[in-house]
Design a protein around this nucleic acid. Structure first.
Length: 736
DNA sequence: CAACTTCAGTTTTTT
DNA sequence: ACTGAAGTTG
């Protein structure tokens, strides 16, 4: 008997050892602490996911917590997937029973499990932001509001912002401000429309999930007791409603384990509240703070630069990354003549990296705004270097896919107005603006769905023969599809719908190139349906049909399909989408005032600090080599600008930076610039892009030259005083 | 209904 | 400067 106990103790000790043997002290502390509420401040590259994964494993293996009692929330499906995968790899078991998902995914699951208490119809569907925008546009028409005075995108932004703050239309106080009153009216009408269409937008998922717990004590108690500890990834990105939801769930027990980094908070503009980290310490008084500061990713030089930049921010929790590895190469800084030269330089370096045996997939070009990608794409293209740009249209967001899904949604829920409007005349079947307008009026007046309105219209029989037939045919089509599809496999349903709806034919007839791709995508959709892993036993989702599950999946996990092909390509992406990734060789480009930091953030301290954190994120993506660059002259929005180098460059210690220059002839081939005349190419010894020094104005770069002989003038961008025209005959310039 | 023209907007993005 | 979307015509 006692030997049995000894044996299990020994076994347990071994488990403990394997779990923590690979962790450093701080990580180990975070994983093993008995504290109920824990705040892990995890610097970039400090093993944040590792801690989260090991903590969960620790609960299960050492504290004998049931997998059923594990909840972990992330922001992206990618992160959730990775976490699940790593836990499974570590524990060598299926992590199916654990609730690991995005905030939206978990909220969705809760709502499906408790549709009654959440006051939702069983058939409710999730709509994405494109659907939402469509719905809003339509709403504006019915409310007789001019789209120019009420820009749909701003309305959408406003509604989402309210929801992110947990504010319903009934909680709004508009006062006497006419504008506010109208906004409120729109918000109210939008809520009503969603209600009768059975549609739930992304913000609504979170808001409803919060209200579900808040207003149903028994439901709340059930989940409070069920989850042993609530784990949260990227805590600095939580918004007000997400945090409120977490607080409800952990109320009384304070069983919450959050991991975050205040220095990497870059989503303030979409409602993330960095303050939640500070509030956490107030709301959970017995919490323990663990700082992870050892970095396993970058060289000493890169970390030094990153630390120095972010040190310029106020009100930080305070953290300094360090590494046990070497200083590495200094950070290279390239002052490009213009944006084309910048791209040329970067691509040249990538080429030599590859020639020296480096892999393309280890290289990333990071920029502040998407518009910057073009120059690099063009250069990479001519250099025949494979590349991939992040952030394009995702699979489930493509028009043809959304069309197909809209038919499926209409089959699942006839009152889904967003889907109805999308497919009523796609492919074209002779239902014009007039008939639509009539339906909208009826729908509004009777407060019914468009589908019901169509039925009313058909019953009335006031329509012209042609319109009547067209509508009748459409109604019949949907009903037929519904019957036809009954009882068949999911992929067969998809297949049948794209064929019988005429969508396939519609896209086949389209202009050669484009249509082909769309047809391919539609086939891919059938394939996705075939591969769809429908887990009918998934707790809480028992009542959901496979089709409903697939539709929810398409909306909530639309990014899933493009994530995998990382292979052998140079990666181009914005700084925002680079968060969480790492690359051996990183180019951080466009470091110019007005571009990065962006123009819009220059006059606001808070936003500027967020830009700085973005810079910190960018720098810390690099493992071995980091190149920074800026252009002396940049063509942006059709206008030539001469930006000053970014302030962030000055915040990096000089000893970390080494200026680099390609040989002049190589860096500016004649084709790279568009001279206005041949004589502009050179001005004696003064070439375009030549660095010069002036007695009074200091250092600068030659941008343009004009005239000849005594009349020759040069335009110079001085670092200190900006752009100046100087007469060559008088200016005393030294070539640098 | 498709081809053409004009016109505003133009940081960052997930769910 | 460029793009995507809305409006206008044949």
């Amino acid at each position: 008997m006692s030997s049995d106990i000894n044996a299990t103790t020994a076994a347990k000790n071994e488990v403990v050892t394997t779990l923590i043997s690979t962790l450093n002290d701080a990580q180990c502390q975070a994983v093993t602490t008995p504290a109920q509420s824990v705040l892990v401040l995890a610097g970039a590259g400090s093993g944040k996911t590792r801690v989260l994964v090991h903590r969960i494993a620790w609960q299960i293996q050492v504290r004998n917590v049931s997998m059923h009692s594990i909840l972990a929330v992330t922001f992206t499906n990618k992160a959730a997937k990775e976490m699940r995968g790593r836990i499974e790899a570590l524990l060598q078991v299926s992590a199916r029973a654990m609730w690991i998902g995005t905030f939206h995914g978990v909220a969705h699951r809760l709502l499906r499990s408790h549709t009654k208490q959440a006051k939702l119809p069983d058939t409710f569907q999730v709509m994405d932001s494109a659907d939402q925008l469509r719905l809003i546009k339509r709403l504006l028409v019915t409310l007789n509001l001019d789209e120019d005075k009420w820009p749909p995108r701003q309305i959408q932004w406003h509604i989402n912002a309210q929801k992110d703050e947990g504010i319903r239309a009934k909680d709004c106080i508009a006062g006497y401000d006419l504008y506010q009153q109208n906004l409120l009216k729109i918000y109210q009408a939008y809520e009503a429309l969603c209600e009768r269409s059975g549609l739930v937008d992304f913000g609504e998922l979170l808001l409803r999930a919060h209200e579900l717990l808040r207003d149903n004590p028994d439901v709340l108690r059930f989940y409070q007791q069920r989850f042993n500890q609530v784990h949260v990834d990227e805590f600095q990105d939580t918004n007000a409603i997400q945090y409120a939801w977490l607080r409800l769930l952990t109320q009384g027990q304070d069983n919450i384990f959050v991991v975050g980094d205040d220095d990497q908070s870059i989503y303030g503009w979409r409602g993330a509240k960095i303050e939640n980290i500070y509030s956490f310490q107030k709301h959970y008084p017995d919490h323990q703070v663990v700082k992870l500061e050892q970095n396993y990713r970058s060289t000493g030089m890169i970390l030094k630069a990153a630390n120095a930049v972010v040190a310029n921010n106020e009100g930080r929790m305070g953290k300094a990354l360090w590494t046990a590895s070497a200083d590495g190469d200094p950070i290279a800084l390239y002052a490009a003549f213009n944006e084309q030269d910048e791209a040329y330089f970067v691509v040249e370096r990538i080429r030599s990296w590859f020639n020296d045996g480096g892999k393309y997939s280890d290289v990333a070009i990071l920029y502040r705004s998407n518009a910057q990608s073009r120059q690099f794409e063009e250069r990479l293209m001519t250099a025949a270097i494979p590349y991939r740009v992040y952030g394009g249209l995702r699979f489930f967001e493509r028009a043809e896919i959304k069309n197909a899904l809209a038919y499926l949604r209409l089959i699942a829920n006839r009152h889904d107005d967003a889907s109805f409007e999308r497919v009523i005349n796609t492919p074209t079947r002779g239902i014009g603006a007039k008939s639509l307008e009539d339906m909208r009026t009826i729908a509004r007046e009777l407060a019914i769905s468009m589908w019901s309105a169509m039925m009313v219209l058909l019953d009335q029989g006031h329509l012209s023969g042609r319109a009547n037939n067209a509508l009748l045919a459409f109604a019949q089509l949907i009903k037929n599809l519904d019957q036809l599809v009954e009882g068949s496999e999911l992929y067969e349903k998809v297949q049948l719908v794209i064929e019988k709806s005429g969508l396939l034919e519609f896209h086949e007839k389209e202009k050669a190139d484009k249509g082909d791709e769309k047809v391919e995508n539609l086939k891919e959709l059938v394939n996705a349906a075939r591969l769809f892993d429908f887990d009918s036993n998934l707790e809480g989702m028992e009542n959901l049909s496979e089709l409903d599950m697939f539709l929810a999946y398409a909306t909530l996990e639309s990014g899933d399909m493009q994530a995998d092909d990382f292979d052998e390509c140079v990666q181009l992406m914005t700084l925002h989408s680079a968060k969480g990734l790492e690359f051996k060789l990183v180019f951080l480009v466009g470091l110019e005032e007005g571009l990065f930091p962006s123009q819009q953030s220059l006059d606001d301290v808070g936003r500027l600090q967020e830009e700085r954190r973005l810079c910190y994120v960018g720098i810390t993506r690099a493992m071995q080599y980091l190149y920074l660059s800026y252009a002396e002259s940049r063509r942006l929005y059709g206008r030539e600008s001469y930006p000053r180098p970014s302030r962030f460059l000055r915040e990096i210690p000089a000893e970390c930076i080494q200026e680099v220059r390609l040989r002049a002839e190589v860096s500016r081939p004649v084709t790279a610039i568009k001279p206005k005349s041949a004589s502009l190419q050179t001005a004696g010894q003064y070439r375009l892009g030549q660095r010069v020094s002036h007695v009074k104005f200091g250092e600068g770069v030659i941008l343009q030259t004009e005239g000849a002989g005594d009349q020759e003038r040069v335009q110079i961008n001085f670092r200190q005083v900006g752009i100046k025209w100087l007469m060559l005959a008088y200016a005393k310039l030294d070539v640098l």
